[in-house]
């Protein structure tokens, strides 16, 4: 069914464009809450892209962890630090012109590199399908050490976060 395939292909390009627009929103909008919402939208769009790349498991994890957890944390922080009907503060510093100039150079250089590199696209890899079972086996087999290290890092971060964010106890009265 070529019509459906072509439609899907251009839909993917459209999704990419939408992600870029939302990403621009993340870095340019003045209201931080809107930025966080744009971030959520961009991340959901990325999850769609993962589905296109046949990484459904990663797409679900992306939504669960990024949208469900990270964005929620960010919004919590925004709510705790911004004033509800706050005055509009300047959100950008005065370095945007040099930043844009440098980034244009960076992007054009890397684009040229990407287009010149002969990527070793292997047809076998394109056919291969990653199943959740395979991911699990890899996590428990080859990658069991990084997996354990990550869990230790997570525990450390959890405890550290609690310690940092906890209100200082007032000195105990004698």
């Amino acid at each position: 069914m070529p019509i459906l395939e072509i439609a899907a292909k251009y839909t993917t390009y459209a999704v990419m464009a939408v992600i870029l627009v939302f990403a621009l929103g993340v870095v340019t909008l003045r209201n931080l809450f809107h930025c966080a919402l744009c971030l959520a939208a961009a991340l959901i769009g990325t999850a769609v892209l993962y589905v296109v790349l046949q990484a459904e498991y990663l797409a679900a994890i992306q939504i669960l962890l990024y949208v469900g957890a990270v964005v929620t944390l960010v919004i919590f922080a925004i709510m705790l630090t911004e004033h509800l009907a706050g005055k509009t503060v300047r959100q950008n510093n005065s370095q945007s012109l040099p930043a844009i100039a440098g980034l244009l150079g960076f992007v054009s250089l890397l684009t040229a590199l990407i287009l010149k590199t002969p990527w070793p696209v292997t047809p076998t890899a394109l056919q291969a399908k990653v199943l959740v079972m395979g991911l699990g086996k890899a996590l428990m087999g080859d990658y069991v050490f990084p997996f354990e290290v990550i869990s230790i890092v997570l525990i450390a971060a959890l405890i550290g976060t609690v310690v940092i964010a906890k209100k200082d106890q007032p000195e105990e009265k004698a």
């Binding site: 870095v27 922080a77 300047r90 510093n93 930043a99 980034l103």
Partner: peptide
Amino acid sequence: IGIYGALVRRNIIG
């Protein structure tokens, strides 16, 4: 775009 935001934003959450 991410780098631009990290360079230009004043707000730490940004």
